[in-house]
């Protein structure tokens, strides 16, 4: 089972490789990928170095080109495909039909992975992308239960990659317009969710802090409460007279305890979320998952090390984790 780790810059890529990633996924420094944050991502020069570093150690590098271009700007995405091919990356990760079509025609030998942003959840949808674009792998949206993942793997349409750890999109990826509705900036089109330039923190009397996103109150925190980043889905709202996290709590996905089941199901690769996270996160999370996968392969049935769970919890958003959609009770 491959371990696919995130990197937002060259040091993170090297850290992921050093700590046991099978492949590292990255993005160019523009809107062509779904983590288009300021100060994040790779210049061409850094990427060339990073790919050299990974390849010298028999590891792979994937480039995410997983946003949806408009007609006027599709040329920039096509050029990004050209650059990826020229850099000799091991795969590109795409969602848009237009980008996939271009890559399939121009670079038939460059492996194409279907991004989570394509929202494909059934073997019929996967068949579409395989027949049209010959995809080599598909990343599943974080909506399916473990049993549904097992069924999908049984079909063997394409090798399946699932999210194993990291921040949790509560909505189907590629099907969420909450950020777009509030700010006009969308994960699908611009590669950004709830961008920082729309965030406003205010101090109120008594140490209360409130946070708005484009003038919509997302949450309010007492002096002692830890405050989270105001993505729309993780705010507290009033429903039926009660105020609570009506959509989702600030929490991270952690499937460490499901690892044997994911392997038995035939999952080809595990993905770690977090290209926006720092070196400590990338290093620790990659190392823990590498150890867990190696132990599972060398000593199937051995108990997981409790220290692993503690280390992962320390890096989880809001310091809490969930089995997320893989476990039915989460739904």
């Amino acid at each position: 089972m491959d371990l696919i780790c995130p990197a937002g810059n060259l040091p993170a890529l090297k850290t992921a490789v050093d700590h046991g990633a099978s492949a590292v996924y990255v993005g160019f420094r523009d809107q062509t990928n779904a983590r288009a944050f300021a100060g994040l991502n790779f210049s061409e020069d850094d990427l060339r170095q990073g790919i050299g570093y990974a390849h010298a150690r028999q590891r792979k590098v994937y480039i995410a080109l997983n946003t949806y271009p408009s007609p006027a700007h599709i040329g920039a995405w096509q050029k990004a495909v050209d650059r990826a091919a020229d850099l000799d990356v091991d795969a590109i990760i795409c969602a848009d039909l237009g980008v996939l079509d271009y890559a399939t025609r121009q670079y038939p030998n460059l492996p194409r992975h279907l991004s989570v942003q394509a929202s494909a959840t059934t073997h019929a949808a996967l068949r579409y992308y395989r027949e049209r674009f010959g995809i080599a792998r598909a990343v599943m949206p974080r909506v399916l239960s473990l049993q549904q993942i097992e069924r999908l793997c049984e079909r063997q349409v394409v090798p399946i990659e699932v999210f194993a750890f990291g921040s949790l999109c509560i909505m189907v990826e590629g099907r969420c317009q909450l950020s777009s509705y509030v700010t006009g900036v969308s994960p699908n089109r611009h590669g950004v969710c709830s961008p920082a330039k729309f965030v406003r923190w205010d101090e109120e009397p008594g140490g209360v802090r409130s946070v708005h996103l484009n003038d919509v109150l997302i949450d309010r925190y007492q002096a002692h409460e830890p405050a989270g980043y105001p993505t729309v889905c993780k705010g507290r709202y009033e429903v039926g007279g009660e105020i609570f996290h009506a959509l989702e709590e600030p929490t991270s996905l952690n499937t460490l305890q499901l690892l044997p089941m994911l392997k038995a199901a035939g999952v080809a690769a595990l993905k770690i979320e977090g290209r926006q996270r720092g070196l400590a996160y990338v290093g620790t999370v990659t190392r823990v998952w590498r150890q867990a996968i190696d132990q599972l392969e060398s000593h199937p049935g051995a108990a997981t090390n409790p220290a692993w769970q503690r280390e992962l919890d320390a890096h989880a958003e809001g310091h809490q984790t969930t089995l997320g959609p893989y476990h039915r009770s989460w739904h």
């Binding site: 974080r142 909506v143 399916l144 509560i170 909505m171 189907v172 099907r175 969420c176 317009q177 909450l178 509705y181 889905c233 429903v239 039926g240 009660e242 009506a246 959509l247 989702e248 959609p325 989460w330 739904h331």
Partner: peptide, 12 residues
């Protein structure tokens, strides 16, 4: 605006 595996009516 958005779809999820989770039911928010049930959650509420």
């Amino acid at each position: 605006l958005a779809y999820s595996a989770r039911c928010y009516t049930a959650r509420a």
